[in-house]
Amino acid sequence: MTRKGLLIDYDYCSGCMSCVVACKQEHGYPAGKWGIKVEEKVFMDPGKPDTVRIDYIPFPTEFCDLCAARTSKGDEPSCVKHCQAWCMYYGTIQELALLMEDKHRSVLYSR
């Protein structure tokens, strides 16, 4: 099984947007075309302001090719390399699924 994917440890994603711009630079995508987009999610238990939690979730779109041109040369995808929170991982789905065991909150994208 060699299918590849991206694991996001979103306990640590703080919404810095480096993955977004790294992807655009790598692929030359113009404004409006996103290979990966960071969504802000704010949830709380109504009436209990102390329970507010902010999460950021990078979402790879149809225009994400897992940086095929880079990974074929053994480099990491640009988003993974430049992630300032070091919360993105690239690998086979199996490797990444194993990594998830240690993560408090994470999400695995297959491509």
Binding site: S18, A22, H82, W86
Partner: peptide
């Protein structure tokens, strides 16, 4: 044509902010 982080540099180890990634 491109600006990337330098993995050998100890300050940030290859990471880079979006403003630097948008230098072009």
């Amino acid at each position: 044509i491109k600006v990337e982080g330098d993995k050998d540099h100890p300050w940030y180890n290859g990471r880079l902010c979006p403003r630097c990634l948008a230098m072009t």
